[in-house]
Design a protein around this nucleic acid. Structure first.
Length: 802
RNA sequence: GCCGGUGUGGCGGAACAGGCAGACGCAACGGACUUAAAAUCCGUCGGUGGCAACACUGUACCGGUUCGACCCCGGUCACCGGCACCA
């Protein structure tokens, strides 16, 4: 049995769009439900087979919530600024805007062909000036509050994109996007002070329902550690401050290490006998890419500062100072105290440079290797700390440092401020003007959006300046503050800017006076359910939480967290179990699947393929099972018997299935929900099916396969769309069979299965169990020691030979 | 190295407050229909032995707790994801 999916699907897609059944009501007495998917980047490659998985999942949730009477907002838009579009535009001499429009058109057609119940009336696009006006507005607010600042610092520079990258965009020392080498460069950059929110970004995770692995990954990325800053003296009189998590090991310090970029090096240039050698080392370190720096990590390198020494505050010992690139300028103070007895890196360095190693916590053999497992134990060789437990030593040294004014407690984070400038064309212009007299001055709000100028060439420049730097008409302006000639900032914002607040725009997409109205935000926020990829955990998800907290602080939104719930989907892999890619030749095109099997089959298979949270390989043959199921549903309509109530034969199964499907959707167990409906239709084949039963099945299946089910519902004579039909209800009492099968074990081994009445008492169950032939045989000649009866499940006879 | 996660038939995967392991689907095999094939329908389908009833065995590996363990505890191995010279 085949059904004409092509015409059916087109018909219903058109009808849904025209009737606006999936458009959210802006004002409503109904309870709201805000479902969010990560809006796509409209790439030239078109929709990937992986896209429909999370989209269909939340589509199912949204459709069910609507049928349950909720006012559902399930919006869609385009995260359209970004490098691939710009690169394509350069290569083919087309304006990035045109490329974007074309790609959006294609994506839109593809998404609509899947029958997703998006509210297309709220479609947004981050490259629309009416949208990025508000991205710029948020940036100005950040600037106003001192959270955006410009600084010169070593940055990650992608040699191919000719652009700086945020730390989060560098993966294994190469560019996350293009895989090219990333090197360090000194550049003046706009930064966002995300570190100011580090603690709150950790703390507030307690208030939201995110997948645990999302939470831990964010916590690890933020990387909070507690320790102390300790002031060492130097022979030059300066204080050399270090950060350590183990101030209790101060007596084990045998040398110090400074990062090659540490400012004291130049400050002490006259005193350092081998300053040229040190400078050469620094140059060498700067030349290395991050990749090389980590590659070489087994072999420690460094140079001793000749003629300068540090002084340990606990015992006034003079100790040598080294420069080594294993110490990072960007974390802590850029200098460390080295305790080779209890730190692997320090131990390796000490061995290489033949430095003394002192044991300060007993228990290891520091001559052989660093004893790092020393969170407990007893202090040795440690002056006034000797004999104390590590725990007590920590308290004692903390007190001592504070009394002596030589140090204090300190919390550090691995998280660094967000590098916000990009030297590219296709992004939001940063709305600031530089005036010789007034410094950086914001473009007045009334002049927003500050539009991207039309330019002829978007080529990135080799000197690291934005293509906008060539656009003199646009750059030269007057200072909004004093009226003198001034220049515009030519860097643009990163792609993550527009996506850091997009969910707020969906709420009120055409508002010209605010990013969204207060009433709308009050009604719709927070997002009730946000599903997206794990790869965004430390990027988009963290950035948008940061922006939202900022918006909360300035009174734009009434809650500190944007997303009440965050889930994640697994990747769809190629048939061979590898990641899909052109080069591997294992790419599946969703258009082809829709063409051959229809959108309903695609949707169903995307959900049936496996555990939603886990990666799963595509199978060109397994999808046929989903098509067969829909064919059987379509064929069933000819066998439907009249009947407005569930038949006795099917009643329990109906209630069970409604319960199962309802719960499974909420728990993202879409695969077992489908399995339950497949089982139901198998039962219909045996018992027959009446109209009431068929209608219920169609309603349950509607969120999964909306086109076919709407069509069959109409064929049944219904004038109301399933989309506007109430979600079926079940009666808990009727989900239980009147007779249950009970497994019977003898000494834990299964011997038989007996059917008893659901309300049978223990004795009746025991009697029935013992009456089973195989069981009786196993019990023969045995002493029954004990009988375990679990009602409705199992009987276990514990026996011993007589 | 550190932090998460996962190991179940030929395959995707079910079952986890400890209670019939393998639901549902794919593939395969046998049969029906057909001139034939496709499609469809019926049946078999973890392994070993047996004509069968049934017996033994089986959820990465070793051990433990329990009447009973895929599930809990201790240890080992493998794979996947994240972080990684963060002091």
């Amino acid at each position: 049995m085949f059904y004409d999916f092509k015409n059916i699907e087109k018909k219903w897609q058109k009808r849904w769009l025209e009737s606006k059944v999936f458009c959210a009501e802006q004002k409503s007495d109904k309870e709201k439900f805000f479902a969010l998917i990560e809006f796509p980047y409209p790439s030239g490659a078109g929709l990937h087979i992986g896209h429909p998985r999370p989209y269909t999942a939340l589509d199912i949730v949204s459709r069910k919530k609507r049928m349950e009477g909720k006012n559902v907002l399930f919006p869609i838009g385009w995260d359209a600024f970004g490098l691939p579009t710009e690169n394509y535009a350069i290569k083919n001499h087309i304006h990035p805007r045109e490329v974007t429009e074309k790609n959006v058109q294609r994506f839109k057609e593809q998404l609509q062909s899947i029958g997703l119940s998006f509210d297309w009336d709220r479609e947004i696009n981050t490259t629309d000036p009416n949208y990025y006006k508000w991205t710029q507005w948020i940036f100005l607010k950040l600037f106003e509050k001192g959270l955006a600042y410009k600084t010169t610092m070593p940055v990650n520079w992608c040699t191919s994109c000719k652009c700086v990258l945020a730390n989060e965009e560098v993966v294994n020392g190469v560019c996350e996007r293009c895989g090219s080498e990333v090197v360090r460069r000194e550049k003046s950059q706009w930064m966002l002070r995300i570190t100011a929110y580090a603690q709150r970004l950790i703390d507030d995770l307690d208030t939201v329902d995110f997948l645990p692995r999302v939470k831990t990954q964010q916590i690890n990325w933020i990387g909070r550690s507690t320790g102390a800053e300790v002031d060492f003296g130097t022979t030059e009189g300066e204080t050399l401050t270090v950060y350590t998590t183990r101030p209790d090991t101060l007596f084990g310090v045998t040398y110090m290490v400074m990062s090659p970029e540490h400012p004291y090096i130049e400050k002490w240039a006259d005193k350092i006998a081998n300053i040229e050698q040190v400078r050469a080392y620094r140059q060498e370190a700067a030349r290395k890419s991050d990749f090389e720096r980590t590659e070489l990590q087994k072999d420690k390198t460094g140079v001793k500062l000749e003629g300068v020494f540090a002084v340990n505050p606990v015992n006034d010992t003079q100790i040598p100072i080294f420069v080594s690139d294993y110490v990072l300028m960007s974390y802590g103070t850029g200098a460390i105290m080295a305790v080779p007895g209890h730190d692997t890196r320090d131990w390796e360095f000490a061995k290489k440079f033949d430095l003394p190693i002192i044991e300060v916590v007993a228990g290891g053999d520091v001559a052989k290797e660093a004893f790092t497992d020393c969170e407990t134990g007893v202090m040795v060789n440690s002056g006034f700390l000797t004999g104390l437990s590590v725990e007590d030593a920590k308290e004692a040294i903390k007190k001592w440092l504070e009394e002596q004014g030589k140090g204090h407690q300190k919390v550090n984070y691995k998280l660094r401020d967000w590098v916000f400038s990009r030297q590219r064309y296709w992004g939001e212009p940063i709305p600031l003007v530089y005036c010789e007299k007034c410094g950086w001055v914001p473009v007045p709000e009334s002049e927003l959006p500050l539009r991207l100028p039309e330019i002829d060439s978007y080529e990135p420049t080799d000197n690291g300046e934005s293509p906008l730097s060539k656009c003199t008409d646009w750059i030269n302006t007057t200072c909004p503050h004093c009226g003198a000639p001034a220049k515009r900032e030519t860097d643009t914002m990163p792609q993550w800017a527009g996506s850091s607040w997009y969910f707020l725009r969906y709420i009120d997409p055409f508002n010209n006076d605010a990013l969204a109205s207060k009433e709308a935000i009050d009604y719709w926020m927070p997002v009730d359910w946000y599903n997206g990829g794990m790869e965004h955990t430390t990027l988009h998800l963290l950035y948008s939480r940061f922006w939202h907290k900022f918006l909360y602080d300035i009174g734009v939104v009434p809650m500190p967290e944007p997303y009440a719930k965050r889930t994640s989907h697994g990747m769809i892999l190629g048939e061979n179990g590898e990641k899909m890619s052109k080069s591997r030749g294992n790419v599946i095109n969703p258009d082809d699947i829709i063409n051959e099997y229809g959108a309903d089959t695609l949707r169903l298979y995307e959900m049936f393929i496996g555990d939603f949270e886990k990666a799963a390989p595509w199978s060109v043959s397994a999808i046929k099972g989903c098509k067969r199921f829909l064919d059987r549903i379509a064929g069933l309509i000819d066998n439907v018997k009249p009947g407005k109530e569930y038949s006795d034969a099917n009643e329990t199964a109906m209630h069970k299935t409604i319960k199962k499907v309802s719960q499974d959707i909420e728990n993202m167990k879409f695969n077992t929900a489908i399995a339950a409906m497949m089982s139901l239709i198998n039962q219909f084949d045996k018992n027959g099916v009446n109209e009431a039963e068929f209608k219920t099945l169609l309603t349950l299946l509607n969120p999964f396969a909306p086109h076919l089910t709407e069509e069959l519902n109409e064929k049944l004579g219904s004038k109301v769309m399933l989309a506007q039909t109430e979600w079926p209800k079940y009666d808990e009492a009727k989900t239980v069979e009147s007779t249950v099968e009970i497994a019977v074990q003898v000494n834990g081994k299964l011997k038989g299965v007996v059917a008893v009445a659901a309300d049978a008492d223990e004795d009746a169950i025991k009697a029935a169990a013992a009456a089973d032939e195989t069981v009786a045989a196993a019990l023969k000649g045995m002493n029954i020691v004990k009988v375990i009866v679990i009602k409705g499940k199992i009987v276990n006879f514990v026996v011993k030979p007589q």
